[in-house]
Amino acid sequence: MTTRREIVRTQNVRKTYVMGEEVVHALRGITLTIYAGEYISIMGPSGSGKSTFFNMVGGLDKPTSGEVYIDEVDIAQLDPYELAWLRCRKIGYIFQTFNLIPVMTALENVTLPMVFAGTDPDEAREKGARLLSLVGLGGRLHHKPAQMSGGQQQRVAIARALANDPAIILADEPTGNLDLKTGHEVIELLRRLKDERGVTIITATHDMKMLDVSDRVIWITDGQVSRIQSRAELDIKVGSIDGKQEA
């Protein structure tokens, strides 16, 4: 195997919050490397620091101490403008609650990140339409979020996350608000994107369906990594996974 490119690297990351007189240690030193093209699931009970770590990896929060490198850039060194740029160009976000802008059509939602990135409007529209057909919504460019089902909204959100060809897609419980079948479709779509486009996918999830497609599962308990399961270990645990993927 060739040397894999590191896309996210954390070095002894700690995060403490001061709540009144109490000091809460949300993260107690996490050192971790995520490689380009990996599908990572972060699991952990609520209050484990999972969300804090997830936000850190996604450039939404800065560590109290330690370093977070996203694509070789230490996010603690970035000013707000550069952080905004990083979020705009390097990371695509997918949310549990879809978070489409309600007043905009599907196409406008997808082109918004490209507007921020300064893409030419015609080019952005064309690419937006292409991305929407990629997620199977080619016929719904001008529908508003309220006119779409949950699964469709989430697919628009996935197209939006891909708008600026990010290196990382950060998905926060992407199937949390979807039924079993649409949830499965969304997971399948994410896996396909990983395989075809080589994007790194990092998800925070409770969904066991997600484990089937993950390359590694990182368990966080009490602000520390308690276990990292790789593909091989997962295969043993889940069983005939290859058969499932082919089906």
Partner: peptide
Amino acid sequence: REIGTLKCLGALD
């Protein structure tokens, strides 16, 4: 949430 989303997509303050 909408404002947060805009910021995630790269909007400045």
